[in-house]
């Protein structure tokens, strides 16, 4: 089979898995391209950023139309994810590849541990997400009038400063590893800032575009994105994510999650070996 169709198929698989399990495609695409197709990590990260922007764009549109995402909060935080991504995009070209591979191995293990511990269902697909911002959070006086304007129906924003710090970290991680950064943004918004989980997931999805594009521009101009690899992979991920979001309600996610944890750990082992090769 031609490599182009293999990349398309790999992208579809990554899109389906990522969508079913509530992850961006990046965590799967980078290992697919490095371990499966032998691409240098920096090029795999560049392609992954393109895929992440593609999948988040369509989903974020649906989240906004259904009024699940908090636009004001998302825009405020994404100013800081963009700053982190700009810095990360510049650092990425300076760091040795084996160091990035080691960091990515850590990310895979962390994600596997997070998935193994997760008990609640995966974040809802845009089609299933309810409007109105989810369950109400505890109501406390806001620290500033600006912070107050970022709150949504039934919840108030707390600890905005920590949210901004978390956003910079998410932007750095996104630029260095080719991920959307939801692994940092969603816990920051939900556990620290008091944003309901559904709103945090949708708002994180909205922010992915700007987060990833700030560094994707650097990858694009500096030769870190190969268009021949990016096109079939991005098309595949887009198709896979669409299929996954429509079939999520028919799949037993418990079994799938167990399988996915095993795949992540195996991939982490392969990536570790590559880092020390």
């Amino acid at each position: 089979m031609p490599d182009g169709l293999l990349l398309l198929g790999g992208g579809i698989a990554a899109g389906v898995f990522g969508s079913l399990l509530g992850l961006g495609g990046g965590i799967l695409i980078v290992p697919l391209l490095t371990l499966g197709f032998g691409l240098p990590l920096i090029k795999a990260v560049g392609v992954s950023l393109v895929c992440v922007i593609m999948t988040s764009g369509a989903a974020a549109g649906v989240y906004l139309e259904r009024r699940v995402a908090n636009l004001r909060l998302g825009m405020t935080l994404e100013l800081f994810t963009a700053i982190g991504a700009l810095v990360g995009g510049l650092i990425a070209f300076l760091l040795p590849e084996h160091l990035l591979e080691l960091i990515f191995t850590g990310l895979l293990v962390y994600t596997a541990a997070t998935m193994a511990r997760r008990r609640e269902p995966a974040p809802p697909a845009p089609e299933d997400a309810p409007a109105g911002g989810g369950e109400p959070a505890a109501v406390e006086p806001a620290a500033s009038s600006f912070q107050e304007t970022l709150s949504g129906p039934g919840y108030r924003i707390h600890r905005l400063g920590w949210g901004l710090v978390g956003s910079v970290v998410a932007g750095l991680a996104s630029a260095l590893l080719g991920i959307g950064g939801g692994l940092v943004k969603v816990p920051t918004m939900h556990a620290i800032m008091g944003v309901p989980l559904r709103v945090a997931t949708a708002t994180s999805n909205l922010m992915i575009g700007i987060t990833a594009s700030a560094s994707a521009i650097i990858y694009l101009i500096r030769g870190g994105i190969d268009p021949f690899v990016a096109a079939p992979t991005a098309i595949g991920v887009f198709i896979g994510a669409s299929v996954g979001s429509r079939t999520a309600h028919r799949i037993r996610l418990g079994v799938l999650r167990g399988l996915f944890v095993a795949i992540l750990l195996y991939t982490a082992w392969q990536m570790l070996q590559r880092a020390f090769a």
């Binding site: 031609p2 990349l7 764009g57 649906v62 021949f228 690899v229 096109a231 887009f238």
Partner: peptide, 27 residues
Amino acid sequence: LTSGSYAAIALLAVGFALMLASGIGPL
């Protein structure tokens, strides 16, 4: 967001089809 995503996927799909037709290997 939606129209941008669909415009991008359409352009990439045309490019990919031309790639296959030209026999260009992605790697």
